[in-house]
C-alpha cells in the first residue's frame, strides 16, 4: 500500500509513536493500579486519562506560545511542557 501521499517524516513518526506509547502506558497503569477519580486544584474531577489529555493539550499551547514569542527550536518549550505535565499529574 502506497502511503507516500501522507508525507511521513521521522520526527512526525516519533511524535505519534510517543503519544501512542503514552496512551498504552496509561492503559497498562490503569489495569495494574486502578485509580479513583480525584478533585485537584482546578476543582474538577479527573482520572489519569483526563490529566494526560490536559497535559497534552496544554503542552501544545505552550509550544505555540514559545514559537510565537521566541521562535524555533522549541527545546525550551519541551522542558516547560515536561514541568507542566508533572504539575498536572501532581496537583490537578
Amino acid at each position: 500500500m502506497d502511503l507516500s501521499w501522507m508525507g511521513w517524516t521521522t520526527p512526525t513518526m516519533i511524535f505519534f509513536v510517543s503519544i501512542a506509547f503514552m496512551i498504552v502506558i496509561m492503559i497498562i497503569w490503569s489495569i495494574k493500579a486502578p485509580q479513583a477519580p480525584r478533585v485537584g486544584i482546578l476543582r474538577i474531577e479527573t482520572t489519569p486519562g483526563d490529566r494526560l489529555f490536559i497535559s497534552l493539550l496544554g503542552s501544545a499551547f505552550i509550544c505555540l506560545a514559545w514559537l510565537a514569542f521566541f521562535g524555533a527550536p522549541v527545546w525550551g518549550a519541551l522542558a516547560v511542557c515536561l514541568g507542566y505535565a508533572a504539575s498536572v499529574f501532581k496537583w490537578v
Binding site: 507516500s4 501522507m6 508525507g7 517524516t9 520526527p11 512526525t12 505555540l64 514559537l67 521562535g71 524555533a72
Partner: peptide, 27 residues
Amino acid sequence: LMTVVNYSVQDTFGNNEFFWVGLEWFE
C-alpha cells in the same frame, strides 16, 4: 489528522514530493 501534522512541517509542490521546513509554517 496525522496527514495534516505531516504536511504542517513540510512544503510540497505536488507529486507527493515533500521538503522538510520544521516549524516554519507555524511561526
